[in-house]
Lab assay of single mutants.
Amino acid sequence: EQLARLKREFNENRYLTERRRQQLSSELGLNEAQIKIWFQNERA
């Protein structure tokens, strides 16, 4: 579920704002660094 949600977010926007990253962190139970790194890896 977390992965599917991250992929949906990535398809909508390849870059997250700090606020959006905080929201996802709270909703998915991941820390902000994990989300940031995931997005960086997807863009690579």
Rank of each mutant, 00 (worst) to 15 (best):
Q22A: 13
Q34L: 14
A33D: 15
R20L: 10
G29Q: 05
L3F: 06
Q34I: 15
R21T: 15
Y15P: 04
L3E: 08
K36Q: 15
E12H: 11
L24V: 00
L6I: 03
Q40L: 09
L16I: 10
R21S: 15
Q40M: 10
E27I: 10
F10V: 02
K36A: 15
E1W: 15
Q23Y: 11
I35R: 00
R43F: 14
E9H: 05
L30P: 01
F10W: 07
L30Y: 02
L30K: 00
S25R: 04
F10P: 02
R20W: 05
E27N: 03
L24M: 03
Q40K: 10
R43E: 09
K36L: 14
R14M: 10
T17W: 05
L3P: 00
I37W: 14
E12Q: 13
N31I: 06
K7S: 05
Q22T: 08
A44V: 09
A33Q: 13
I37F: 10
R20F: 06
T17D: 12
Q2N: 08
L28K: 01
K36D: 15
E1M: 09
R19F: 12
L28C: 05
R19W: 10
R20I: 10
E12K: 15
S26P: 01
L28R: 01
E42A: 13
N41V: 07
I35Y: 01
A44M: 13
L3M: 08
E42M: 14
G29T: 02
N41E: 07
R21F: 12
A4T: 06
E27R: 03
E9L: 08
N13R: 07
N13A: 02
N31F: 06
Q23V: 11
Q22I: 10
A44E: 13
I37A: 14
N41I: 10
E1F: 10
G29I: 02
L16Q: 03
L28Q: 01
E1L: 11
R21I: 15
Y15V: 11
L24K: 01
E18P: 14
L3A: 04
R8T: 07
Q40Y: 07
Y15T: 11
K36G: 12
K7T: 07
R8N: 06
A4N: 08
L16T: 03
K7L: 12
S25M: 10
E12M: 11
R5V: 09
T17Y: 04
R21V: 15
L28T: 12
G29M: 07
Q22M: 12
L16A: 02
Q40C: 08
Q22L: 12
E1P: 06
S26F: 14
R5N: 03
I37T: 10
K36W: 13
R19A: 15
L16N: 03
L16C: 06
A44N: 12
E12L: 12
R8A: 13
E9R: 06
E1Q: 10
T17P: 05
E12A: 10
R20A: 08
S25A: 14
N11C: 15
R8E: 11
E18W: 07
W38V: 02
F10C: 09
E12N: 11
S26T: 13
A4M: 11
